[in-house]
């Protein structure tokens, strides 16, 4: 039983928090700008590398540097939007998706060019977990990651529910035409969307790097489960993205627990397929996702 918590539930919650933060950005872009942003994974990667660079310069803890990373990454992402997505504002979605794919390759190349293709770590070496009650092993970094992720999700909730710009974002997600007619400044809402998405992407990238390591492919490698989380939660539904991310992360890790007998229920080698199995199931039986998102 204690193995269940140590090696399945806690890693699942950590992974789920990271997926959830990534999925918030994906689902906001999808809901408001109406395209699947393939560059989102590389934006997470960029966030991790920015933090790494500042750690080299200051020697501070990555979570302390996270707000700075969020600001810098937001500025970069707004610049990208102006340069690569604004010209396509009225183009068909497929054009913008291809543009985001191109942007993904460009960011990756710039990252490789600037920081090299070698693996790096925030803190080299390993961090032993704290042991509670002689059996429960929780690494301090996992506690930090899960708590920080929860706080960030609460912030997103507050922005969307209680601020003017958040309400405008929700309105635009529901109906862009109607939102424009009621006098909402759409370009401002788009900027806010990118900023919120970039901040969450920075957090996802930094947490992922804090838990494992920094590599130029790290964001891309979690992009597909992140997309699955956004779809499971319901496209354009930030709360759905949070729920979907946690659901997929936890299920992936729980799938290989020995539920029946001694062996793992599902060989761990196949756990990557779990998120897609959930996604397909949701698309068949509840195409709008858990939180009644958009159906295309």
């Amino acid at each position: 039983m204690i193995d269940f918590i140590n090696f399945h539930l806690i890693p699942g919650l950590v992974l789920g928090s990271i997926y959830a933060l990534g999925a918030i950005g994906v689902t906001l872009t999808f809901g408001i700008l109406r395209f699947a942003n393939f560059a989102h994974g590389e934006i997470m990667t960029l966030g991790a590398y920015l933090t790494l660079t500042m750690m080299w310069l200051t020697g501070w803890h990555p979570l302390i540097l996270l707000p700075v990373t969020m600001v810098i990454l937001s500025l970069i992402v707004i610049g990208m939007d102006q340069a690569f997505f604004k010209p396509f504002r009225n183009s068909p979605a497929v054009t913008v998706v291809i543009a985001s794919f191109g942007l993904m390759l460009m960011i990756r190349s710039v990252t490789q060019f600037s920081w090299g293709a070698q693996l790096q770590a925030f803190v080299p070496g390993i961090q032993r977990p704290n042991v509670f009650f002689d059996a429960l092993r929780i690494s301090p970094k996992h506690i930090l990651i899960v708590i920080s992720a929860m706080v960030l999700m609460l912030v997103v909730h507050w922005v969307l529910a209680h601020t003017r710009i958040g309400k405008a974002m929700r309105a635009m997600s529901d109906s862009p035409e109607l939102a424009r007619l009621t006098g909402i400044n759409t370009e401002l809402v788009i900027k806010a969307t990118w900023i919120l998405g970039a901040c969450m992407a920075a957090a996802a990238g930094v947490f992922l790097a804090y838990d494992s390591h920094v590599s130029t492919m790290m964001g891309f490698q979690i992009l597909l489960p992140t997309f699955a989380a956004a779809i499971v939660g319901g496209i354009g539904r930030p709360y759905g993205a949070m729920a979907g991310g946690l659901l997929i992360g936890v299920t992936e890790e729980l799938s290989s627990y020995a539920w029946l007998g001694d062996g793992p229920l599902l060989e761990p080698g196949y756990k990557a397929g779990v998120s897609f199995a959930i996604m397909i199931g949701v698309l068949i039986w509840r195409p709008s996702g858990l939180f009644r998102g958009r159906v295309f």
Binding site: D3, N6, F7, H8, P11, V14, L15, I18, L208, D211, S212, M218, Q221, I222, E253, S255, S256, Y257, A258, G263, P264, P268, G269, K271, A272
Partner: peptide, 10 residues
């Protein structure tokens, strides 16, 4: 993959 903890547990 981001985590191999469940593999290692097995």
């Amino acid at each position: 993959k981001a985590s191999y903890r469940s593999e290692l547990s097995t």
